[in-house]
């Protein structure tokens, strides 16, 4: 990756659900995602990960701050330009049971993006594309005419992935795509995501609260806490040398499949008040930032 080109640049992104009366769910978050990499976003429930992810694909209004996609500011996009951005940026949802329209057949679910963006020349082409997508996510052609309720969670998530890939996006937000799945299925889905990334040169924002999985899939990681990014950097550095006390606490919570270490593992509690308003991310070693 010699180019080191940033596909996504997020600056001071803020989202406020309360309309200025309460505290924002996401507060002045800044990061950048390079083309072709996987950027992991971790943190506890309610820390603003999902809100951040949804703002990046314009599913939530951006209260303030800016998001640049391939150099273009997407905050104010409308009409034609927004539609074009939508084609390039897709999202995979957490709950495979809620993310597929129960009244539509798999074929129409997957083809929806193709239809909206007129990516197929004719009916035959549409069918071919859908069939290819279906087989690339490991489902069989006879599944095309079935309804979502006939599938298991893992299969549904595969359908969700196929739907997101149908528009040939460059950037995909994976909003906890595996946390609702059985552990034995999680690895399959993550491997599928990695394979598609390699094949299509995709850029991922991978949101999760499962640190071990994020470490496995991500090139770089950001740790969020109460709406702010407290630490960010290459995953090796963040895991190997966690500097922020919250990151340390999170990492201390990862269980290891080793009875010896599990007996001695102590969870480091984190009960410090949130960072001061004026705290900024400081670079402590190359590429490794901590909120101080």
């Amino acid at each position: 990756m010699s180019a080191e080109k940033n596909l996504i640049e997020v600056k001071d992104l803020t989202h406020d659900y309360t309309g200025g009366r309460g505290r924002p769910a996401v507060q002045r978050v800044s990061f950048a995602i390079r083309e072709g990499e996987t950027f992991g976003l971790v943190g506890e429930s309610g820390c603003g990960k999902t809100t951040t992810g949804r703002m990046l694909v314009r599913l939530l209004e951006i209260t303030s701050g800016s998001v640049r996609f391939d150099g273009q500011d997407i905050t104010g996009l409308r009409g034609r330009e927004l539609l074009d951005f939508r084609r390039q940026a897709q999202i995979i949802f957490q709950d495979p049971y809620a993310s597929l329209d129960p009244r539509k057949k798999v074929r129409d679910i997957i083809a929806e993006g193709i239809d909206i963006h007129h990516l197929a020349q004719n009916r035959g082409d549409r069918e071919t594309q859908v069939a290819q997508l279906l087989s690339s996510v490991g489902l069989r052609p006879e599944h095309l005419t079935r309804y979502p309720h006939e599938f298991s969670g893992g299969q549904r998530q595969r359908i969700g992935i196929a739907r997101a890939l149908a528009t040939q996006p460059r950037f995909v937000v994976c909003d906890e795509p595996i946390s609702a799945l059985d552990v034995s299925i999680q690895a399959q889905v993550v491997n599928l995501l990695k394979e598609e990334q390699r094949r299509r040169g995709l850029t991922y924002l991978f949101i999760a609260h499962d640190l071990s999985m994020v470490k496995y899939i991500s090139d770089r990681i950001a740790v969020m806490y109460r709406g702010r990014i407290v630490e960010t950097g290459p995953s090796d550095l963040v895991y190997g040398n966690p500097l922020h006390p919250y990151t340390r606490s999170l990492i201390s919570a990862i269980p290891l499949p080793d009875p010896e270490s599990e007996r001695s593992r102590r969870r480091i509690p984190y009960d410090q008040p949130e960072a001061a308003e004026d705290a900024e991310l400081q670079e402590v070693e190359p590429g490794h930032f901590v909120l101080l």
């Binding site: 940026a89 949802f93 809620a98 929806e112 909206i116």
Partner: peptide
């Protein structure tokens, strides 16, 4: 509020 509606919106519907 369902995610499949959000998904349709993200697709550009």
């Amino acid at each position: 509020q369902m995610e499949y509606v959000q998904a349709a919106r993200a697709l550009g519907a």
